[in-house]
Design a protein around this nucleic acid. Structure first.
Lengths: 126, 126
DNA sequence: CTGCTAATTGACGTTAGCGTTAAGTGGTTG
DNA sequence: CAACCACTTAACGCTAACGTCAATTAGCAG
């Protein structure tokens, strides 16, 4: 099913506007094919946008997201060892930051649970 | 140690600029005491700013952060049951979103680990 | 008093991430 | 053919979250 999608189909499916999708292309986050002047999107493009949206949920800027998508895209085989080492260090830094975020979330969930139980005890009392 | 801090001491300790701290006050996220015209910050103010920064790391806007700090601050006892129920639903919604974020992070960590092991295998080969 | 340092308010500048016209192109439908 | 889509580019607009600069004030050192 190598379905190709128009921009409006895609925007509907993903819950973003066509403007947003074009904007991401402007920012070099996408490079869809063209049929004449019209853009057509593959399942890969769709997956990329999902990646972008996930990155945004996690609080990354589009610039950061592009950086890390370049990591995913990186064609490792032709790379020099130095470049790979560098890539590796970036990946590890990023992973560390993400683990930090998980901790942040854990703490916040804890605090929210505290509020929740306070609320419940008060409501139950009445 | 009820140490009171000047704005520049505080900004140094927290790694943000004084401008940022004043900006947060403008946005009603802080209400430090004054000595004359000068602001002085307590450990509570410091804790609030840390909360703000954590919120930002998690991708919340300052408006959202203010909302949720109001939740933490909320004095539950004098509240009506309806208000508490409402508060409760907000808290639960927020917690759900945070759990979703944790999943996002897990997936990203998985992908990063994939890249990492690829890198390592290539580097080791040479 | 002079000069320096740290603080203040106010105003304008900047970047990111889109929203919103405007103006035109190309394909189908009746 | 006209009318109506869905699509295009280009350009301006807008909000959030500060940065930056200017003008001013207060405290202390020499």
């Amino acid at each position: 099913m190598n379905q190709l999608l128009t921009i409006s189909e895609l925007s509907d499916e993903l819950g973003v506007t066509a403007r947003t999708i074009r904007f991401y292309e402007d920012k070099q986050l996408l490079k869809p094919q063209r049929v004449g002047a019209n853009r057509v999107y593959s399942y890969k493009d769709k997956a990329r946008i999902k990646l972008i949206l996930r990155g945004k949920r996690l609080g990354f800027s589009l610039d950061e997201i592009r950086e890390y998508m370049d990591l995913y895209d990186a064609d490792l085989d032709p790379m020099q060892v130095d470049q790979i080492r560098f890539l590796l260090s970036r990946v590890q830094l990023r992973a560390e930051a993400l683990r930090k975020q998980q901790q942040d979330i854990q703490e916040m969930l804890g605090e929210l649970a505290g509020i929740e139980s306070e609320c419940l005890s008060i409501v139950d009392d009445k």
